[in-house]
Design a protein around this nucleic acid. Sequence first.
DNA 1: TCGAACAATACAACCGGTTGCACAAGCGTG
DNA 2: CACGCTTGTGCAACCGGTTGTATTGTTCGA
Lengths: 346, 346
Amino acid sequence: MSTTLQDIADMLKLSKSTVSRALSGDPRVAEDTRARVASLARHMGYTPNPTARALATRRTNTIGLAVPWAPRSLSDPFYLEFLGAAGDEAMRSGYSLFLSTPDGDGAGAVRAHAELADPRRIDGMILTEPRANDERIALLQSVGLPFVVLGVVPDPLVSWISGDNTTGARDAVDYMISLGHTRIACITGPPDQTASDARFEGYRLAMSGAGLPLDRNIIEAGDFTQSGGYSAMHAIIGSRGVPSAVFACNDVMALGAMRALREAGLAVPSDVSVVGFDGISMAEYVDPPLATVKQPIQELGRMAVQILIGRMSGEGGPVRCILPVQFQPRDSVGSPRLGANAADRG
Amino acid sequence: MSTTLQDIADMLKLSKSTVSRALSGDPRVAEDTRARVASLARHMGYTPNPTARALATRRTNTIGLAVPWAPRSLSDPFYLEFLGAAGDEAMRSGYSLFLSTPDGDGAGAVRAHAELADPRRIDGMILTEPRANDERIALLQSVGLPFVVLGVVPDPLVSWISGDNTTGARDAVDYMISLGHTRIACITGPPDQTASDARFEGYRLAMSGAGLPLDRNIIEAGDFTQSGGYSAMHAIIGSRGVPSAVFACNDVMALGAMRALREAGLAVPSDVSVVGFDGISMAEYVDPPLATVKQPIQELGRMAVQILIGRMSGEGGPVRCILPVQFQPRDSVGSPRLGANAADRG
DNA sequence: TCGAACAATACAACCGGTTGCACAAGCGTG
DNA sequence: CACGCTTGTGCAACCGGTTGTATTGTTCGA
C-alpha cells in the first residue's frame, strides 16, 4: 500500500485534515507545520490517491477523447498525430486522457457516447468528426458536460476548434486554376460531415470565383479512407471522362486516388494533378510528393485541450477558434496538358 | 446529480447494502427484492459511480497504454491501428483505456512511466517498444503492476505479445535472394530495441543462410520514422555504392528510403527493390506498392488487452505469444538488373 | 413449546481524500 | 480582568460504493 494522509498525520501527531490543508497550501496552517508536513510527505513519497480525491471533489482530472473507430479502423495518421499532441498537452496540464473509440456512425455511436459522457468519469470531452445536427452534441449539452469539438459547429454555444477548411481548400483549388486547370474533380468526405462540407465549399467558391461550372459528374463522395478515395477516383475516371486535376478532401483519399489513376494508366501530375488536405507527414514521402493543405495538427490537439480546460473551469463563454492552414504545392500538381481540358470537356 | 444506491434504497425502504447486493447478484437477497431493485434501478437509470467503486474495490477498471511520443511525434500508422484495436477490445471487456504518451527515451521516459504506473490509477499496463534491459519493465515489476509488452522480452516472467519478427524478416529477405539479389541493404530501427534487433536477426539469418556476406557498409541504423529511413538510405547510397535491394525494418522507413532512392535518380524496383515491415494500409497505396511483412496489427491490439486482463485476474503464469506474420510481395520488389550486383560489388 | 438453523436484511466500518465548523490557545484592548 | 479577535488545529461529515458482521423474523425438528 502506498502512503496516505493518515500515515503522515499519525507520524506527525496531526489530524489528516491539517495534513491535507498543509499540502494544499491552505493559509490557515502554520508555516512551520507546513514545512514539516511537506518534508515528511516528500520523504515518504506521498502522492494523493487520485480516486479518493476524485470522489471527494467530484472532479476526475480526466479528459475523454472520442475518435471514431469502426468502420474506418483508424488508419488516418491525422488522428494519431492529433491524439499524441492532445495527450501530451493533457498530461502537461495534469490531466489524464481517457481514449474511447466508439463504434460506427448513427445510433450506435450516440449510444456509445452516452456511456462515455459520464461526468463521474470525465471532466470534459473532445469530440471529433462532427456532423450536421450531430446528436452527440445535443447529448453532451443535455448532460451538461463541458466539451470541445474538433471541427466547425454552427451552434454559437458550442466551443470548437478547426483548421480553416474553406480557405485552405479554396487556396488549393485556386492554385490549380491558376495553372490552367478548368476541369477539376472533387472527392469529398462523408456527406454531412462538417469538415467535408467546408472543404467542398472552398472548392465550390474557387470554381465559381473563376467562372468555372460545377460539374456533378466529377464530384464524388468518399469516406476519408484510402479505399474510399480509390473507389471515388475510379468512379470518376471510369464513367465520366478524365479531369485534369483532382482535389481530395483529405490526404489519405488523395493517396487512394493516386493509386486509381496509376492503375488507369494516368500519370500524376502530367495527366492528372492531385491535391490533398491535412498535411500528414506521409504526404511528403509518396511519389510524386503530394501537394496538400497543411493543417497545424499538433497545435489543433494542444489547443483543443487548452480550450477544454478553459471551459471546464467555467470561465468565459464558448470559444470558437479557426487556425490558419497553408497550401503546400508539391510535385503532384502541375500544369494541365495543352488541349487536354478541351478534349475531355467534349 | 445522478442516482445513487442510497436513492434507490430510500425509495424501496431498504439499506444501501442490500441494494448493492441485489444488483451484484448476491444469492442472499430474496428473489422478489432483487427484482424490485433491478426494476427501479433501470427506471431511474442507475449506473454505479466508477470512482466510488474504484475507491472501495481498489480496482479502477482502467488499462494504461503507453505509446512513445517525442521525439517521434506519433507518425507511424501502425500505432494508430494497434491503439484503436486495443481500445475497442478494452471497451468491449468493460475497461477504460488511459492513454499516455510519455516523452522521449532514457531517464525521462522512465520517470514518466513511474508516474503512470500507479496501481491506484490503473489496473494494468500495455507497454510498447521494449528495449534490451528496459528499466521501465524493472519498474513495473517492482511496483507489482500487471503488464503486457508489445514486443519480445527475454525475461521469462514477463508477458508479451509480438509478431514473428525474425521469421517475417527472414521470409522477406529470402524472397529477395530468391530473385537473385545478393547485395541487400538493411535499415534497422533504433539499436537495442527488441523489434528492430529481431528483424535484423531475420535479415542476418537469410543472408548467411544463402552464403551471402554481411556487409556493414550497407547496414544502417534508422529510427522507425520516415525521415530516419530517408537519411539512412541516403547514407547508404551516398557513400557506399548502391545495393540492389533494401530491407527496411518498418514500413515508414521504407517509404523514406524510397524517397531517397527517387531523389538519387534510382527507380524502384528496376534499380533497387524495397521491402518494409508492418503492413500498414498505406503501403498498398504508394507507388510502387510497397512489399511488406504483414503483421496482424489489430489482432495484436486485441490480444494484448486480453492477455493483460488475464494477468490482472491473477490466473496462470506469464503468457508469451508470437503471432504469425506474412510476407506480402508487391511491385516494390523485382529481379535485380543483370550485372548490377557485380558492378556495384567491385 | 423451545431452541437451533436458516433466510433476509440492516448496521457500520472502510476505501482516502476534502471541507464546514467547532474549539483551544494566545493576543491586544478597554 | 473580562472580552473579542486571530491563529492553528481537530472533529466529523461527506463523496458513493463494498463487505464483514449483527440482527431480525421464520421455520423446523426434537
